[in-house]
């Protein structure tokens, strides 16, 4: 099994909002990438934004500045 590192995971109501998140983070130079929503959060499907917990501030700042509305912000 791969060892799990702590993760910052941000979920969204739609996959379109997740794609907007990717775009604004890339534009702002904020780290992270899109992943399938982890099953600890929901057994449904969808996209989430993954970053390291220590990157929380820069990621949330880019998200807010870019007008992205999250569903939830988790640290797993």
């Amino acid at each position: 099994m791969r060892q799990k590192k702590p993760r910052l995971v941000i979920t969204f109501e739609t996959t379109t909002m997740a794609l907007k998140m990717e775009k604004v983070c890339h534009a702002a130079g904020a780290p992270g990438r899109l992943i399938p929503v982890p099953r600890e959060i929901t057994a449904g499907c969808g996209l989430a934004w993954l970053a390291a917990p220590e990157e929380r501030e820069i990621v949330l700042s880019a998200m807010q500045d870019g007008g992205v509305i999250p569903q939830d912000i988790h640290t797993l």
Binding site: T14, T15, T16, M17, A43, G44, C45, G46
Partner: peptide, 17 residues
């Protein structure tokens, strides 16, 4: 099909989905 909230009986309410 919406790609999100698969176990809900309701289709997602947020645009554009």
């Amino acid at each position: 099909g919406s790609g999100v909230h698969s176990f809900s009986h309701e289709h997602p309410a947020d645009y554009p989905t």
